[in-house]
Nucleic acid binder design. Structure first.
Length: 706
RNA sequence: GGGCGCGUAGCUCAGCUGGUUAGAGCGCAUGCUCGACACGCAUGAGGUUCAGAGGUUCGAGUCCUCUCGCGCCCACCA
């Protein structure tokens, strides 16, 4: 058997993956270990389902490499392993992609109509939906593909429906007219979490509202009350002016009225604690229809909601005629001009403020009142609130975050959480299961059910019984509030048990310059190109190598070079050992204690065996504690320097040939086992060539060294 | 405004609960066709000693305080 001098991943990876897939060992039911014992440990991971819109990005490559490392190690430890893959329908994102495609044909979704459009999205899904999963195979991900789920599958839709109706019957879902974030391009509401803010230079305008004093005894020096605003056009919908109750400056004015310029509406001056007396003039205009905080003030003081901006971002008929039909920013200019003429603009200051934008299309988000469905987060009847149970699950330690400090983000968000607006005005998604409803559910409503809906819920399937609760969820940190929190309360609410016990938040992959990778801006690294260039093993080792401490990693391609060289090193060390024309050794007999007993061990023999033992222990421990980079580096150092540089060199001149040979094989085999989770392809390829008797069919299902 | 984190070799980063000459990968220098590997081997340079200042301690990259620089998350300052 002659092996090439240089390891070539291209001739190996595809072939090996096929063998694995065919073997069925990705499926826990087919693992021989699982068949033998009755009571067996389980390890279940649900993949964070990628969208059907994209191709694999660096973050996902990292995430799934790390999960695969854990999964492969557990499988070798004889644990019954299920890694359940899947994809998410990603409502808004997918709809936008398909709309873009339509645009190329000069069509809009409205011309197509709802049904035809949805058909079109399904076509898209069929064509592109699984691309990302195929890409994960290139990475070497050992998922049970036979259990792949999609959030719009029929079974899954049943789960969504069941969950909605459950909350509905409980009285926790209600219909409300509320100001919501509204994207005038996507024509849908957005949750707070779907906004992106961009710092922008703007102005703070000081507007004079003439006073109408009822109480003649009051002698006011000023005839106006001055309010500061960054959005003067919303004044058309003002229904009050508010001041802080403790603000002495305005005490006398509370209960009085002001006249809204141009609109000529009388509006009350109210006192509310939400007003910061130090900002601007200490008096604010209140527009309950177009500002969340003003809406709250409005509720407290029973103010009217006057909607002056519509779904298209234009001024409504509720405003005076000269402004009707203008776009919001046009209206702003006109109002400033008009007020200036009337000497009602006191001054303007430069002011930088964050502008909310739609995270999908970048359009500036308006806040408009809209009829939406909400899920109560705070309701404590007839059972503890969703908020409470979500907090409790983590507080009690039943769900643990790694690294732990992410629990703070979690608690912090939940503490201030508002009712969840679960309706979206798009077409692609789960329809709200009530008569006459056209709206669709927020994508995250279905994602929240992921750990159990993927196992068959609401049906009482064998999988559900066997695999719930799952062990691990791994994701980027950005979706702790969007996803994890909601999975946790959903799991407890529907399954009466926490959905998972561990959360691993992996670092964010930044560019070498420290920028966020962004596909739309063309910034970043394509993991598929890395695999093409260096091979999957090298790519895996390279990214894993960088997972050391901090929150972010600045991606360096040099580590892929390192990974590639290391593949070659493993390859050649194996080649050397194989060249020794070994007698067929029984794999079972290659055990440490038989070697250690031998009286003729040299110093070098003892040293390498000792180092190997240390390495086994620390790699095992590191992986249990999510210290991936540490584990990889220790292994690398052991294999390259202790084994290759020292022992193999030494072995060339050792006299006890047979002993030396056994040790070479023993250390190689054990190293391959340890390396396999990190670099599954090369190690498997070499394992297949080892001239040992009683081998397992695959290294993938060999026993993890102890 | 609140929270989290980072600042250690030219670059990217390790250094856990404080303890001998501070480590890795890549890069760099010099020399190597010796029975696997030049994607290799050997040797080595490189940190004013770990952003800066102060403190705790027998002893501090490692704990505390402050300052400077950078990043991220959350938030109802119009």
């Amino acid at each position: 058997m002659k092996l090439p001098k240089v390891y070539n991943p291209k001739t190996v990876e595809g072939k090996i993956y096929q063998l694995w897939e065919k073997s069925g060992f990705f499926n826990p039911d087919k693992l021989s270990a699982a068949k033998k014992k009755k009571k067996i440990k389980k390890f279940v991971v649900a993949m964070a389902p990628p969208n059907i819109t994209g191709s694999l990005h660096m973050g996902q490559a990292l995430e799934n490499t790390l999960v695969d490392i854990l999964v492969r190690k557990k499988r070798m430890e004889g644990v019954k392993v299920l890694w359940l893959p899947g994809i998410d329908h990603a409502g808004i994102a997918t709809q936008n992609v398909v709309e873009k495609e339509l645009k190329k044909e000069g069509k809009t979704r409205f011309e197509l109509g709802r049904e035809k459009f949805i058909e079109r999205v399904w076509q898209w899904k069929k064509k592109y939906g699984n691309i990302i999963l195929d890409q994960l195979k290139k990475l070497g991900a050992s998922c049970d593909w036979s259990r792949t789920r999609f959030t719009m599958d029929e079974d899954y839709a049943r789960a969504v429906k069941k969950a909605f109706l459950y909350y509905w019957k409980k009285g926790w879902i209600y219909l409300g007219k509320r100001p919501v974030n509204w994207c005038s391009r996507c024509q849908t509401s957005l949750s707070d979490l779907e906004l992106e803010y961009e710092e922008k230079k703007g102005k703070l305008w000081y507007l004079r509202y003439p006073l109408k004093i009822k109480d003649k005894r009051l002698k006011m020096k000023d005839e106006h009350i001055v309010v500061a605003t960054t959005r003067p056009e919303t004044m058309l919908g003002d229904t009050a002016v508010a001041v802080n109750p403790s603000d002495k400056k305005y005490k006398k004015l509370i209960g009085e009225k002001a006249i809204l310029p141009q609109v000529h509406r009388e509006i009350p001056i109210v006192a509310d604690r939400l007003v910061d007396p130090k900002f601007g003039t200490g008096a604010v205009k209140v527009t309950p229809a177009h500002d969340l905080k003003d809406y709250e003030i409005g509720i407290r003081h029973k103010l009217q909601m006057v909607q002056v901006i519509d779904e298209k971002g234009k001024i409504t008929k509720n405003a005076p005629p000269p402004y009707q039909g203008l776009k919001a920013d046009e209206a702003r200019e006109k109002i400033i001009k008009d007020l200036k003429k009337l000497n009602l603009l006191e001054k303007e200051e430069d002011y930088t403020l964050p502008i909310p934008k739609c995270y999908r299309c970048g359009t500036i988000v308006e806040i408009i009142p809209s009829r939406q469905w909400f899920l109560k987060m705070d309701a404590t009847h007839p059972s503890p609130s969703l908020k409470q149970i979500a907090i409790e699950a983590v507080k009690s330690g039943k769900v643990r975050f790694h690294p732990k400090n992410f629990e703070k983000i979690y608690f912090n968000w939940l503490k201030n959480v508002r009712d969840w607006c679960i309706s979206r005005q798009i077409w692609w998604g789960h329809k709200i299961p009530l008569k006459g409803e056209n709206d669709v559910l927020d994508t995250w409503f279905s994602s929240a059910l992921w750990p159990f809906a993927t196992l068959g819920w609401p049906k009482e399937t064998g999988d559900l019984r066997e695999f719930y609760p799952i062990n691990l969820i791994s994701s980027a940190r950005g979706i702790i509030n969007l996803w994890h929190a909601r999975m946790i309360f959903s799991g407890i609410e529907f399954m009466k048990e926490i959905p998972f016990s561990q959360v691993y938040i992996h670092p964010t992959v930044l560019t070498k310059e420290g920028e966020r990778m962004s596909k739309s801006l063309g910034i970043g690294v394509d993991p598929l190109q890395l695999i093409e260039k260096y091979g999957a093993d090298a790519t895996r080792l390279g990214v894993t190598w960088q997972i050391t401490g901090g929150q972010d990693i600045r991606f360096g391609e040099e580590d892929m070079v390192m990974g590639k060289k290391f593949c070659n090193k493993i390859w050649n060390a194996s080649r050397f050992i194989l060249m020794n024309k070994s007698p067929l050794i029984n794999a079972d007999k290659l055990r440490r204690f038989t070697l250690i007993k031998s009286k003729s061990l040299t110093q070098a023999d003892r040293k390498i065996l000792k180092a190997l033992e240390r390495t086994v222990k620390s790699v095992t421990r590191d992986l249990e504690n999510f210290r991936f980079g540490q584990a990889a580096q220790i292994l690398y150092h052991f294999f390259w320097h202790d084994f290759c540089d020292k022992y193999i060199e030494e072995s060339k001149s050792q006299k006890e040939k047979e002993n030396t040979q056994k040790i070479l094989y023993y250390v190689l085999l054990t190293s391959l086992k340890l390396l396999h989770p990190f670099m599954p392809f090369v190690t498997e390829e070499i394992y297949q060539k080892l001239p040992l008797k009683n081998k397992k069919k695959f290294l993938m299902i060999e026993t993890w060294p102890k």
